[in-house]
Design a protein around this nucleic acid. Structure first.
Length: 336
DNA sequence: AACCCAACCTGGGTGC
DNA sequence: TGCACCCAGGTTGGGT
């Protein structure tokens, strides 16, 4: 399912196709997919039509497109004139920065697809965004979502609390989409702070996987990469956070960064057609997973050491957790 | 603060 | 063939 590497694959694909293009019209085919836009479809569409996409930015699993608006003379607006913008009277339209972004979260099954108009609507097409014509570029950005856990909405851009860029984009802005401001930076973000992460982990009294999945502690990690990072680091999901040594935490963050970097290079993890990039292609990292989904199979690390150990699946936090009982042992006598 | 659970959804799978 | 049920899981929000 879409976790950081999958969302980053989508971000890169989108950036290539939509940066600098203007939204000409929007069809909301299922209002449930914009339910997080509290003001309804009409307002959602009104915020988007005639807006130009400045960039595609990601933090964790959140993806957003900062917007600019071109307005003809006399159009009322409470936007802000950008410095160095048109001073009026010239042939160029006035450009305003409305301080909003189009936010997308893929949830469990959301897809953002670039399509030509003649391609038939996908079965679960929810929102269609038509873009200004451009040579050799698809004209539609489609949001397709089978399970409707994901969605699109318009959100304000606010100053980034730590002063760095709001997230990873082509031309990073010092603002962040308001609805993503509560989550921590992800391990692929150059401004990620290990010290912040470690302080938060040590201040909690809970199981290790719980903080890995807590987007306000470290973002971008979901159930798949949590299991993979823990396996790589040789740590158990129920390890009490307050006993975690600095070296363990460093190894864990490195493991998470490594596995997600590898997954990104492979185009992400696809188990079925639910995760695809903007061109509809699957990633092939699923074959490189060592723990997730490998219940009953030998642990590859143990096998390499001449040991026999079988990956097991257990319930933790109401979801499946996959571990090797030999190289990720549970505590004995409460000691780790 | 930590933890649990419900809600939001569909489709694929299994058991009867 | 059909029906009931379970499962997959990201995020929010409410309750304890």
């Amino acid at each position: 399912m879409p976790e950081l590497p999958e969302v980053e694959v989508v971000r890169r694909g989108l950036a290539r196709w939509v940066r600098g293009r203007t939204i000409t019209s929007v069809d909301v085919l299922d209002p449930r997919s914009i339910r997080r836009h509290g003001l309804g479809a009409e307002d959602f569409i009104g915020n988007l039509e005639r807006a130009t996409v400045l960039d595609v930015v990601r933090r964790g699993k959140f993806l957003w497109m900062p917007l600019a608006m071109e307005v003809s003379d006399g159009e009322g607006s409470d936007g802000v004139e950008p410095s160095g913008g048109s001073d009026g009277g010239g042939p160029l339209p006035d450009v305003i920065l409305p301080g909003v972004a189009l936010m997308a979260h893929l949830g469990m099954s959301g897809q953002l697809l670039m399509q030509d108009p003649h391609v038939p609507d996908e079965k679960h097409l929810k929102v269609r965004i038509r873009l200004s014509a451009a040579e050799g570029m698809p004209e539609q950005l489609r949001f397709v979502d089978q399970r409707i856990f994901g969605g699109l909405f318009v959100t304000a851009l606010v100053p980034t609390p730590d002063g760095g860029p709001g997230g990873l984009g082509e031309t990073p802005l010092p603002e962040i989409a308001e609805e993503a401001a509560h989550i921590a930076r992800d391990p692929l973000d150059p401004y990620f702070s290990f010290e912040d992460f470690y302080r938060k982990v040590k201040s909690r009294k809970t199981g290790l996987k719980r903080v890995l999945l807590d987007q306000s502690v470290i973002s971008g990690i979901g159930n798949i990469y949590a299991d993979e990072a823990l396996w790589r680091a040789g740590l158990h999901y129920a390890r009490p956070t307050d006993t975690l040594r600095r070296a363990d935490a460093e190894r864990l963050v490195e493991s998470a960064r490594d596995v997600m970097t590898d997954a990104l290079a492979a185009g992400g993890t696809s188990f079925d057609s639910l995760y695809v990039n903007v061109n509809g292609d699957s990633g092939y990292f699923a074959r490189s997973l060592n723990a997730y989904g490998r219940t009953g199979e030998p642990c590859s690390r143990c096998a390499a050491a001449g040991l026999v150990s079988i990956i097991k699946r257990e319930q933790f936090m109401n979801r499946s957790s996959h571990t090797c009982p030999v190289c990720q042992p549970r505590p004995r006598n409460g000691r780790w």
